[in-house]
Structure formats: C-alpha cells, structure tokens
C-alpha cells in the first residue's frame, strides 16, 4: 500500500537501458524516464522528506525503522531529462539480510540505478557512514545528501563537507529537507553524476585485517577474471565470504553482470 504511483509492468522494448530487463524484474517501469535514481539511507534521517522534496509527492514515513517495506516511486524533471526516483526502505546496513535490507540491497545491486543518493543524518554522521561505506562498495555512482543540517547546527555540530566529499570520493550536498534548503543543489548534482559530468572515485573499506583482506582480494581477482565487467567484485567477494546465499545464486544465474 506504499506505492505512490502504481504503474503497470509493461514490456519496454524502446528502452535504451542496458539494465532495463533487470529493473523490470524488480518491478520498476523505466519507460518514461531517462535516468533511474535510488534513495537509500538510515531510518530517521528524513529520507522520505528528501523524497517528497524532490518529487513533490507526499509520501508518509514515520519516525521508525523499516517503515517502507515496499518501495515508493516518484519522478522529477530537470534540464529536459526525466528522472525516476525510487525510495528504498530505511536500513542501518545492507549486511544483515533482513527483509527490508534485502529489498534495498537487491535494488542497488541488480537494478543498477544511474545514481544512488544516500541520505545521512548530519547530527549522527559516524553511525550513518556505516551504510554509506557499504553502498560505496556496491556502486560507483553515488551522492551523499547530508540532511538535517539544521538539527546538527542546533546541537553545535559542524561538518566539513568538502573534506568529507574528498574522503568518500563522491559529491556531498548539505540539505535541510524540511525547509527545502539544498534541494536544488542536490538535483543539480544528481544530474551531473547521472550524465557522467561528475565521476566518482568512491572510498573502499580499508581497515580489514590482513588475513581477511587477503581473502577478499584473492576472491575478488578470481571473480574479475571470470567476469571482467563486474563493477563491484570486492563487494561480491565479501558477500561470498559471508556465505550470502542470495549472492551465490545471483552468481549462478548470471544476474550480477549485464
């Protein structure tokens, strides 16, 4: 009952998307969109407020974790391009394999959106980076939306967003979505990442101990040898080492590579 706009799943022959079929399988109709944008983030970060501010829709998500179990969809236009926005369930992580995390994870991994916007609570940055760093292992095209900046200021927290952008290797946009502050900038940056104007060099997880990181590298290079186009071999390797059955079967079905 959360779908804001229910669109029938139709065949999509005219789509130029290489991943159109995958998206269709996930129930997303991309017929009338030039780019697909996913919205990820922790619960209680005002993710739905950002979604509403971007799309002009009024989707309600309360002050809870895991409220949007199914996805909400909306759209916006900018510079004559049409963007389809998918609101993913709010999750703390993508590793625990609960139902809502799986929905979010599968979308970013298999749907391969053109841009993934990660909404983070500026007043609780460290906690939110857990999800951010995981998303950056999966996708190269991401934008960090540092939301609730007004609240952070109220608590005397200030964040050096330029250094943050440099450290993460992706653009960072500071917003206060409740008052609409920063939303135009966010749209602009989304467009730039989607069109390839901005190229991201995302941060990769570093502090793994040597035994673990060796295993990850070994498996990752083996994966790359088998699938030269695999964009997130390191992450796939990590999931395989964690014994993730869904990724294992995706590998067997060939869902991971176009």
């Amino acid at each position: 009952m959360k779908e804001v706009k229910e669109t029938p799943m139709e065949a999509c022959e005219s789509c130029a998307f290489y991943n159109a079929a995958q998206l269709k399988k996930l129930g997303v109709n991309v017929e009338n969109a030039d780019f697909v944008v996913a919205l990820a983030g922790n619960p209680n970060t005002g993710k739905s407020t950002v979604f509403n501010a971007l799309t002009g829709l009024r989707q309600h998500t309360g002050n809870w974790a895991g409220k949007t179990v199914t996805r909400a969809e909306g759209g916006f236009s900018y510079n004559e391009k049409r963007y389809k926005l998918i609101d993913l369930p709010g999750t703390y992580s993508l590793l625990s394999t609960s139902e809502d995390e799986e929905v979010a994870r599968n979308f970013i991994l298999f749907g391969r959106p053109d841009v993934t916007v990660i909404v983070a609570d500026a007043s609780r940055l460290e906690r939110n980076l857990n999800l951010v760093l995981q998303v950056l292992e999966i996708t190269d095209k991401a934008v960090l939306c540092l939301n609730l900046m007004d609240e952070a200021k109220r608590h005397g927290i200030s964040i050096d967003d330029r250094t943050l952008a440099k450290d993460l290797g992706i653009p960072v946009v500071v917003t206060s979505a409740r008052s609409g502050e920063g939303i135009p900038e966010l749209i602009k940056v989304i467009a730039q990442v989607a069109s390839g104007e901005i190229v991201c060099k995302p941060h990769k997880i570093k502090n793994l101990n040597s035994k673990v990181s060796e295993a990850v590298e070994e498996l990752s290079s083996k994966l790359l040898k088998a699938y030269p186009g695999l964009p997130n071999s390191r992450w796939v390797a990590m999931r395989l080492l964690d014994g993730d059955q869904r990724i294992l079967s995706a590998l067997k079905e060939g869902e991971l590579v176009a």
Binding site: R127, Q134, S158, I159, D167, N207
Partner: peptide, 28 residues
C-alpha cells in the same frame, strides 16, 4: 577466514567511519 568474517567486516567499516568522522566533524 573463520566464522567471524561478518564481525571483522563490520568492525572495519565502523573504524573507517570513525576515521573519516574525526577528520570532518567538530562538536560543540
């Protein structure tokens, strides 16, 4: 690697997060 891969990975992510946060965040 052993059964605690998940622990190790989460620890690594959080310690990266802590490093980054300490570089960019000033608390009043």
């Amino acid at each position: 690697v052993g059964d605690d891969f998940h622990d190790k990975l989460t620890e690594a992510i959080y310690s990266d997060a802590a490093v980054i946060t300490s570089r960019v965040e000033t608390k009043g």
